[in-house]
Amino acid sequence: MKSNLLKSLFNKHIKQHLSITDLSCKNHLLYREVNTGLLKGFCFNSSGFAADQFEIVVFVMPLYVPKNFLALTFGYFLRSPNKRQWWQYEEGKLEQLGQDLAVVINQADKDLLSKINNAQDFYNYYKKDRKNTFRFFEAVSYSSAYAGLPDSTEILKDCLSFIKRKEDLNNSYVQEVYHNTEKLLDGNRKAILDEWEMETRKALKLLKR
């Protein structure tokens, strides 16, 4: 779906059905302006095979975890009323589409977004899943540091142990997380995380704060 179509769909057919009032629309995103280190929202991904199909992913992205792209790891796609991953954009059925999208957006807000409002919420929500992958452990441990939790040093050390035990340190992405985590353990965590947050915001063109 082209971004101008999303903008039009959002303004004309979705917005009025939402229980959330502070969503902004930009490119392929519906998102909340952030001032807590988190970007929360909905990403509309187009299908590479059919121009009129798209999926919608609800996500939370901790901006203090350094990234130069929009990461959707902490989220899930929202199924259409007929339980499909891919939604159909049809010119003649936009009002119905808008209503259906609003239903799943409202539900996802209730189920996920409203529960995670800051780094500590993020930590609490995902800590049980931290061993899923090193990306989970990375985000959970950095959230503990960003929130200033007293046991963040231990959690960061656990992250390093997890990576050493489970991951391939020849993978450049794994190496980067390992070194970043060491940097956090050795340095001024708040300053480093703030710097990473600014870099991520810059990469995502989300500089308004």
Binding site: H28, C43, N45, S46, S47, G48, F49, E55, V57, K67, F69, L70, A71, L72, T73, G75, F77, K83, R84, Q85, W86, T133, F134, R135, N171, Y173, V174
Partner: peptide, 24 residues
Amino acid sequence: DAQGLKGVATEQSYLGKDVAKYGI
């Protein structure tokens, strides 16, 4: 997509072991 197989998703983008927005 129509079959709705359990645990199955199509056309997912990944970068650096993260789920990524399409086309990155």
